[in-house]
Write a protein that binds this DNA or RNA. Sequence first.
DNA 1: TTTTGTTTTTGATAAAGGTCAAAAAAAATG
DNA 2: CATTTTTTTTGACCTTTATCAAAAACAAAA
Lengths: 187, 187
Amino acid sequence: MQHLLTHISNFHPISEAAQEALENCFEKLVLKKNETLVTEGRMCRHLYFVESGALRGFYKVDGKEITHWFGFENDFVTSFHSFITQQPAVENIQLLEGSILWAISKEKLTGLFNQHHEIERLVRIAYEKYYIRLEERYVNAQFKTARELYENLLLQTPHILERVPLGCIASYLGISQETLSRIRSQF
Amino acid sequence: MQHLLTHISNFHPISEAAQEALENCFEKLVLKKNETLVTEGRMCRHLYFVESGALRGFYKVDGKEITHWFGFENDFVTSFHSFITQQPAVENIQLLEGSILWAISKEKLTGLFNQHHEIERLVRIAYEKYYIRLEERYVNAQFKTARELYENLLLQTPHILERVPLGCIASYLGISQETLSRIRSQF
DNA sequence: TTTTGTTTTTGATAAAGGTCAAAAAAAATG
DNA sequence: CATTTTTTTTGACCTTTATCAAAAACAAAA
C-alpha cells in the first residue's frame, strides 16, 4: 500500500487526510499469470493500480486477440470505457505475470472526489497525462512503417519486448506476428 | 457566450456562481477561413470553444500535412500537448471555415479550478469523454480497411465529409487521397 | 528424458494501398 | 465571363505487409 501512496505523492502531492482516505478505499489483489481481471460483456467497476507484475488489455476481432495496451508497475489500469460509462466491457484484461494490484471501486472513487477536491485534481491531472500518451501512440501508429514502430518500441519501452510474448506485441503495434518476427531478425 | 454556457449546462450542470466565473474568463474570437490559431513551435496557452465554424489540427511529416482532428460547433479544441505541458506545439490549428470561438487561458482555467471544485469536475468529466473518443478512433484506425474507415465516417460523422476538403479527410483516416477518391467513387 | 503443447520462424503467394504523373473538374479571382 | 489556381479523379506500376502453411525452436509436463 505504501507503494501506491508513494507513487501518488511523487506524481502529485496530497494532504495527510487525503492519503488516509485513499488508504481506506483500496483493496489488495494478488493474481497469478494468465488469470483474467476483466471479461468482455461484463461490467468493469474498478480501477486498478499495478504494484508489481504485468497485464494486457485485449479485444477480439474475427476470433483474433488484439492487444491494445500493456500495464506494468505503477500504472493505473482498467477497462476505461466500461469503468466510465458503466456499460459492459468490450475488452478483456489478462495477467501476463503474477501481479500485486490495488483496486478501488467507482463508487468509492466518486465518494473520494466529493470529500477531497485534491483527489479529483489528482485524477484530472492523471487523465491529462494518459491522454497525451494515447495521442502520441495514435500519431505514431498511423504513419510509421512496421520497422519504425519496432524501433520505437525498442528505444522507448524495451521492457515490453522483454516481458511480453511476440504475438501480443505484434497486435499491439498493429502488424502481423510474422512481419514482426522478420523485422526482429534483422537487428 | 450564452451558447457556451448552455452547452456546458447540458453537459454537466453547474451553479450560478460557477457560470458567472466562467463568463468572466472567456474571450470572444472571430476568425476567417484559412487563418491560423496555433502554429507549431509556438506555445499554445489557450483552450478554445467552437461556437460556430470548423477547424483542423495538423502536423507535418516529410512536408506533408497530416490532419489528425477536426473541430466543429460545441467542441473544445486546443493543441492539447502544448496546452498541458506548456511546451512548444508540434501541431498547427487552422480554420476550415470562418468561425466564432471563445478562448480561456491556462492561467485563468487553473484559477477557476481553485475557486470552483465543480469546474474542475466538469473538466475531469470532459476529459473522460474525450479520452474514450480517442480510444475508439485508435482502435478503429489500426484494424479497419480503408473502405471500412470511409464507411464509418459516412455513418458516424457525415458532416466531416460535407464540410472538409478530401485531402484533409484522407490524412485524417490515415490513407492516401487517391485511395480515398477511388473508394468514394464506388458509393 | 520423452512427449506434448505453445511460440516463433521461414517461405511462397496475394492483396491492399502507396506513389507518381497527368487529366479533369471545381473553385476562386481579376 | 475568362483565366488562374486548387482540388479531385484516373491510370500504371510498385512496395509493404498480410495470409496461409509448414518447419523449427522452445517450454511445460508426464
